[in-house]
Computed example of a mutant assay.
Amino acid sequence: MNAHSAPQERRSPGPQELTVLGQPGRERSDAAHNRARLLDAATSLVRELGARNVTMEAVASAAKVGKGTLFRRFGDRQGLMRALIDHAEQEYQRAFLSGPPPLGPGAAASERLAAFGASTICHTLDHLDLYLAAEPCIERRHLVPASVVRLTHVTTLLRQAGASGDVEALAHALLGYLDTALLHHLHVRRGFSRARIEKGWRELTDRAVLAVPSRGVDT
């Protein structure tokens, strides 16, 4: 996302313009089957060993393919970790883009904001080891497609809820609370419960749209 241009704010696209990202392009059935088999093997190893301890050799062995096949499919270990995250992100994105309310369309924007934070916290902590292993370099952290989707979604909900001022900057600030490294620090290092972290998100979003009358249900 680019910065706002003066004097008119550059608006983010609405929810109808967002689609689930991270899905592979159209593939032959055998290629899709092989990809799924490799990802299933890698997912099982991540659950068993932790993402940081999973090697390309171990995944190839578990999937019963040559290591060269795995490298050709995903490029390198970082590519494999990104593919695993894309795999995990698909259902998560579908839920807040088109799933049932209050996370999906059909609830008031303020309710959707609260549900989005709770869903993101749960999703990130459930896949924390994987996200930490595939964390992009700091210069690219906000440019990866999943981050752009989240920013656009939160910006849109803030506008629908009646937030004022530089709404995109406010969305960036709110999403900083859902940053993988911060959630790791709060949950693992500081011992914050999921309920406490979710309560923090609700307090932040409530303040972001404080004293703004309800605008009803979005579509």
Rank of each mutant, 00 (worst) to 15 (best):
135 E>V: 12
38 L>Y: 08
77 R>E: 05
34 N>P: 01
199 K>I: 02
113 L>W: 04
15 P>N: 14
216 G>A: 04
7 P>A: 08
116 F>M: 09
69 T>H: 10
31 A>V: 15
200 G>S: 04
210 L>Q: 06
80 L>N: 06
126 D>Q: 09
106 G>E: 10
38 L>W: 08
158 L>T: 07
56 M>E: 10
12 S>M: 12
96 F>Q: 07
64 K>M: 04
119 S>E: 05
161 A>H: 01
71 F>R: 06
156 T>L: 02
22 G>W: 08
136 P>E: 08
124 T>E: 02
53 N>D: 09
105 P>F: 12
113 L>M: 05
143 L>M: 13
10 R>A: 11
181 A>T: 05
82 R>S: 10
219 T>W: 09
111 E>N: 04
149 V>K: 09
38 L>N: 11
212 V>T: 04
5 S>F: 07
10 R>T: 13
112 R>F: 03
6 A>L: 13
42 A>W: 04
122 C>T: 15
183 L>C: 06
101 P>K: 04
6 A>C: 04
9 E>H: 12
70 L>M: 10
46 V>F: 05
210 L>F: 06
140 R>V: 00
92 Y>N: 11
107 A>I: 06
143 L>P: 01
103 L>I: 14
88 A>S: 11
144 V>D: 11
86 D>P: 02
215 R>T: 03
183 L>R: 03
55 T>Y: 02
25 G>Q: 05
206 D>S: 10
81 M>Q: 13
108 A>Y: 01
200 G>F: 00
166 D>N: 15
11 R>A: 11
105 P>K: 08
214 S>D: 14
201 W>L: 09
139 E>A: 15
92 Y>W: 10
94 R>P: 03
198 E>D: 08
185 H>W: 10
90 Q>T: 13
2 N>R: 14
111 E>G: 08
173 A>I: 12
219 T>C: 08
209 V>L: 01
183 L>Q: 03
56 M>I: 15
134 A>M: 05
144 V>W: 15
120 T>K: 15
25 G>T: 10
138 I>Q: 15
135 E>G: 02
127 H>Y: 06
63 A>Q: 10
138 I>V: 13
87 H>Q: 15
65 V>H: 02
88 A>R: 13
4 H>L: 04
178 L>S: 08
88 A>C: 08
135 E>N: 05
160 Q>T: 00
66 G>S: 11
77 R>F: 09
40 D>C: 02
36 A>D: 11
183 L>M: 09
113 L>E: 04
66 G>H: 14
153 H>V: 10
15 P>T: 06
86 D>K: 07
55 T>K: 03
171 A>C: 07
125 L>V: 13
47 R>N: 11
11 R>L: 15
20 V>K: 04
126 D>E: 11
114 A>T: 06
136 P>C: 07
203 E>F: 07
7 P>D: 10
21 L>T: 14
209 V>A: 02
6 A>M: 12
177 Y>G: 03
156 T>D: 12
124 T>F: 00
16 Q>P: 10
154 V>G: 08
39 L>T: 05
139 E>V: 15
40 D>K: 05
65 V>A: 01
165 G>Y: 05
31 A>F: 11
